[in-house]
Amino acid sequence: MRRFGLIGCPLGHSASAAYFAAKFAREGITDCAYELYELPEIGALARLLADVPELCGFNVTIPYKREVMPLLDELSHDARMIGAVNCVRRTPEGRLTGHNTDIIGLRAALAELLGGDEPEHALVLGTGGASQAVQYALAERGIPFDLVSRDASKGNYTYDDLPCGVVEQSRLIVNASPVGTYPAVDAAPRIPYGYVTPGHYLLDLVYNPPLTQFLDFGRQRGAHILNGEVMFREQAEASWRIWNE
């Protein structure tokens, strides 16, 4: 049995195991399994690899997308440029290669959300591993952006000093933080939503719940909204291709 999985902490919100179980059933794949491996800290990865020698590849989620990088033998070009890993391939010899398939999902999500429009400026909420991929995707499209972080040393603004005018002028706002993820479904990034307009685009990388408070606030203001389902699906399929190269 070839095994695959997801490492991170916590994993109670994740739909990855259900997604791959459905994929395996739909495509008649009977020799593979996908499981959730919640690790209390990234150092536990070595024990997981020793205990599950048939683990051929795994996805990486919060909070380990950057922490896993020093433990890998090799990085793909995208992973190196982005500075984060969400997919690892393990060879039969045990070598670990890190990839970033989030960027593939983000390209698809931005294309679906924006269509032919190109906002003059974007606002990225969060500065973690997922945010790194968002920044890379926006740079590819030539869309300038500012970062909002809880830590003043990591972003252009904190949530406490974010000017209303920046929100108004940033027609694309991306929630690259975990805020609003199940079970904390009543939470939303603390930005002045009163300055969101029908000309705005709100993208939430969270897919559980499908309509986060962040997106609902945007919907109420008439903005175009998209959750993380497109990104989730596309990055999962890209991971599967990498594991089966």
Score class of each variant (00 low, 15 high):
Arg2Thr: 13
Arg2Met: 14
Gly5His: 04
Gly8His: 02
Cys9Met: 11
Gly12Lys: 10
His13Gly: 07
Ala15Arg: 12
Ala15His: 12
Ala15Met: 13
Ala17Glu: 14
Ala18Val: 10
Tyr19Met: 15
Phe20Met: 09
Lys23Gly: 08
Lys23Pro: 05
Phe24Glu: 02
Glu35Val: 11
Glu38Gln: 14
Leu39Ala: 09
Pro40Met: 10
Gly43Met: 01
Leu45Lys: 03
Leu45Glu: 03
Leu45Trp: 00
Ala46Glu: 13
Arg47Met: 06
Leu48Gly: 06
Leu49Cys: 07
Leu49Thr: 03
Val52Leu: 07
Pro53Phe: 01
Glu54Ile: 04
Leu55Asp: 03
Cys56Pro: 00
Val60Tyr: 03
Thr61Glu: 09
Lys65Phe: 01
Lys65Thr: 08
Glu74Asp: 15
Ser76Gln: 09
His77Tyr: 06
Asp78Arg: 06
Ile82Val: 15
Ala84Asp: 12
Ala84Lys: 05
Val85Phe: 01
Arg89Phe: 14
Pro92Tyr: 02
Leu96Gln: 07
Thr97Lys: 10
Gly98Trp: 05
Gly98Tyr: 05
His99Trp: 14
Asn100Met: 09
Gly105Lys: 04
Glu112Val: 12
Gly116His: 09
Glu120Trp: 00
His121Thr: 13
Ala122Phe: 04
Leu125Tyr: 02
Leu125Pro: 10
Leu125Ala: 09
Gly129Pro: 03
Ala130Asn: 10
Gln132Ala: 15
Gln132Cys: 15
Ala133Ser: 14
Gln135Arg: 09
Ala137Leu: 06
Ala137Phe: 03
Ala137Pro: 07
Ala139Ser: 13
Glu140Asp: 14
Glu140Lys: 03
Ile143Lys: 00
Asp146Thr: 15
Ser149Val: 11
Ala152His: 13
Ser153His: 05
Ser153Tyr: 00
Lys154Phe: 03
Gly155Ala: 13
Tyr157Glu: 07
Tyr159Gly: 14
Asp160Gln: 11
Asp161Phe: 04
Leu162Ala: 09
Pro163Gly: 02
Gly165Lys: 06
Arg171Gly: 07
Leu172Asn: 02
Val174Trp: 01
Ala176Gly: 11
Ala176Thr: 10
Ser177Phe: 08
Ser177Gly: 11
Pro178Leu: 05
Gly180Arg: 02
Thr181Gly: 04
Tyr182Gly: 06
Ala184Val: 01
Ala184Gly: 06
Asp186Ala: 15
Ala187Leu: 11
Ala187Pro: 01
Pro189Glu: 13
Pro189Val: 09
Gly194Met: 06
Thr197Ser: 14
Pro198Ile: 08
Leu203Asn: 07
Tyr207Ser: 11
Tyr207Trp: 09
Pro209Cys: 10
Leu211Val: 07
Thr212Lys: 07
Phe214Arg: 08
Asp216Glu: 15
Arg221Gln: 12
His224Lys: 12
Ile225Asp: 04
Gly228Lys: 05
Glu229Val: 12
Phe232Gln: 00
Phe232Glu: 04
Ala236Cys: 12
Glu237Ser: 10
Ala238His: 02
Ala238Trp: 00
Ser239Arg: 01
Trp240Asn: 11
Trp240His: 06
Trp240Val: 05
Trp240Cys: 12
Ile242Lys: 08
Ile242Arg: 04
Trp243Leu: 06
